[in-house]
Design a protein around this nucleic acid. Structure first.
Ligand code: MN
Ligand code: MN
Ligand code: MN
Ligand code: MN
Lengths: 240, 240
DNA sequence: TGATTGATTTAGGCTAGCCTAAATATAAGA
DNA sequence: TCTTATATTTAGGCTAGCCTAAATCAATCA
């Protein structure tokens, strides 16, 4: 396998690509906390070995092969996150850094055994989908809590894992996966919300709301599995 | 923490020191599969940072600090080995390389949680003692199977983990931890043995017998825990 | 004791990744 | 269109570890 550094570059390119579309030298520089010059060098290397397409001064995009490799690392990262929470009883805000290291030393066999021991999970502790071994990423349409209106109800399906502080604060408010949220009030000028979770009411900022993703509240009675899943399959080969 | 390379040097020095007493440049070179010149360089570095004492042209020995660090890595290695066998259902001959990588990315917290999740094991899957977090290594007096005489009985307490092939072969014969072995015949000129394990008889070479460590057969009825334990405590501060 | 030989160390080089400073290309504004 | 600001790339250097070849030490044997 590639070095830890190369793997983290690929993963970052993949994530930025999914989230922002364009991946620039400076976005990678910021994300990986490495100088732009170093990124530029690494990009050249990745392009040479066929993991990315590079248009100088324009940006970078994963090749098929690069994407496959990136998704594989994402899969390992998320499997380890499940392990840390389910088996080792970590909190969801404590797992990122550990998984960031574990993902690089995971052999195919280890990945397989871990997956099996965990019962073939499909989501990580933040609600992110775990890619299959074949590299398929099934993403459900999710709305951010910030997009809901007063009076609506929803269920938490994902919380952005980009900041441990956000995660810690969310769980302090009781906002964890599968919790039901009622929107009691919404201030349009700043997007902040008054919400009810498990009987308690909280004010949350628009900023925080953008990190919380939800699905329409399940129909209580039937179809607890197929509620409004506008399934979007991000498979290898299609750029997301 | 130190780099993976430094950690593996420390661990190898520790192991060689326990096993052979003297640790030379060439023994490290052989064990780590690195040129003698490279070892020489690294030794200088380790001596500079206070992890080893170095007498040029003579050899190297861990300082207190170096020994503490080495034992810590051994502890992590063996905890991961238990995890791989107990949780991920690996065979005992498949775990070394995985643990060799996992040991280096294990934070204090991860070590602690893993230990707890495994139920604070004291031995690894090969029968080696897992050092405590304080660095204490309790080693029981063990005899190699090669030292027994015809007619004697014993129980397998450890199998050298130095070769996956030995481990695989041993388990194929049914020679695994806690199995009872009867010595049926011994050829003095080459040390080979005819033994009985679980009702089956096997011939094993003297070479193989040297990799199998045993304790006198437990008294069946009482004292299943304190059978002839000439306990030897190898604590930090005492050279083993 | 003195020569020989094997082990060890030193010298000189290489690669992966990182950095800062300098050069250059692109895009936006006058 | 021309200038300027910003992003990107290139140049030149550094460190950790590795290597081979050359130099040096120490232990043994004649
Ligand atoms: Mn990582
Ligand atoms: Mn996650
Ligand atoms: Mn190792
Ligand atoms: Mn072991």
């Amino acid at each position: 396998m590639a070095s830890e550094n190369v793997e983290d570059y690929l993963k970052s390119i993949y994530t930025l690509q999914s989230k922002e579309g364009r991946v620039t030298t400076s976005s990678l520089s910021e994300r990986l906390r490495v100088s732009a010059a170093s990124v530029s060098e690494m990009i050249k290397k990745l392009a040479d070995e066929g993991s990315v397409h590079h248009t100088p001064y324009k940006g970078v995009a994963l090749t098929e092969e690069g994407k496959t490799r990136a998704i594989r690392i994402v899969r390992r990262h998320r499997l380890w996150e499940v392990f840390l929470v389910e088996v080792l009883k970590y909190e969801w805000d404590e797992i990122h850094e550990e998984a960031e290291r574990l993902e690089h030393i995971t052999s195919d066999k280890l990945e397989e055994r871990l997956d099996a021991a965990l019962g073939y999970p499909t989501k990580d502790p933040h609600g992110d989908v775990i890619p299959t071994r074949e590299g398929k990423v099934v993403q459900f349409g999710q709305a951010s809590l910030a997009s809901l209106k007063v009076g609506e109800q929803c269920v938490v399906s994902r919380v952005s894992d980009s900041s441990p502080d956000v995660l810690k604060y969310a769980s302090k408010l009781g906002i964890t996966l599968r919790k039901k949220i009622h929107i009691r009030e919404k201030l349009e000028f700043d997007g902040s919300l008054r919400v009810q979770v498990e009987g308690r009411e909280h004010f949350i900022s628009g900023k925080l709301a953008q990190h919380i993703f939800v699905e329409p509240v399940a129909d209580e009675k039937r179809r607890r599995s197929k509620s409004f899943k506008r399934v979007r399959t991000i498979s290898r080969g299609k750029s997301s």
